[in-house]
Design a protein around this nucleic acid. Structure first.
Lengths: 157, 157
DNA sequence: CAGTATCCTGAACGATACTG
DNA sequence: CAGTATCGTTCAGGATACTG
């Protein structure tokens, strides 16, 4: 993406997307949430170049979206695996939302190749909007309210 | 993004992101959801080149994420404005999710420049995961279940 | 005002070879 | 196995000029 610094400061949507919107990144996150941890496994599943994969893993690690954990196979040198973090898990509503929107609006038959369910209840799960009390809110009922912050006001003088 | 056809077929996350992950696209959607409709207004707010804006509006319109509506100022030729569609509104959980993740994890002070509230209740709103009954589900409780479809099975023979 | 056309540049990516 | 290094290409996007 490479959005300007000004955009990033003013819009968290753009900021987040500039991080996870790069090619392959979201697929890495998808895989790591499904239990993939090792370089070579990512490489085979994603079929991207090792250089790109390496770069993405680094960016994601620096951003706190992956955690690098050392391990050592008997007789081998230390290697690293990549694990999801709290921040990765907190991104799940976005991932699920992207997936389900795509299933509805881009898949020819309106359904995708992956189901999401609760482990506990087995029920299907979807991304939605809720209020502070946990009650569902319709997307049509949203309002976005820009909060003018004091620091930058001089700009529009 | 430009993910391969195979990726798109297999992953709605990648498919959706290849559409809305292009530079400027998400900002157009953000603005149109806030009531911006005209070419020049987008141009001024986004500060991108008219060629890129034109391309994005076209892509979004073709994807059903914008609706082109004709209007005519007195004495002028017909022009068009761009309105959100049902599909745009259905993308709101994703947008809000992206925004709130960015606010939490990328903003220096952990809060962003925009609040989201319900018009009806005035309560703060966030993106979350819910089950079929509308009950909140923890991201940690998710499982993603690949559905092997018959058509393509030959591939891994 | 609402775009289209053109030119140009950077950098992102793919392919491939190499290293510990 | 887990990466790093290098090279070449492509292409998206910025700047700008032009049109109805």
């Amino acid at each position: 993406m490479n959005i300007t610094a000004s955009d990033l400061r003013h819009c968290s949507i753009a900021a987040t997307l500039s991080l996870i919107g790069e090619k392959w990144t979201i697929l890495i996150l998808r895989d790591v949430l499904q239990g993939v941890t090792r370089f070579d496994d990512f490489l085979r599943r994603l079929e991207c170049s090792p250089a790109v994969l390496s770069a993405r893993l680094k960016t994601l690690t620096e951003a706190g979206l992956l955690r690098k954990v050392g391990y050592r196979e008997p007789g081998e040198r230390e290697r690293f695996e990549y694990r999801p973090t709290r921040a990765t898990v907190e991104l799940l509503p976005v991932l699920i939302g992207l997936m389900q929107w795509g299933d509805c609006h881009m898949a020819p038959d309106g359904e995708g190749p992956v189901q999401v369910r609760s482990r506990a209840s087995g029920k299907l799960v979807r991304a939605a909007l809720v209020d502070e009390g946990g009650a569902l809110v319709s997307p049509r009922d949203m309002q976005m309210i820009p909060m003018r912050r004091p620091e930058q006001e001089s700009e529009d003088a």
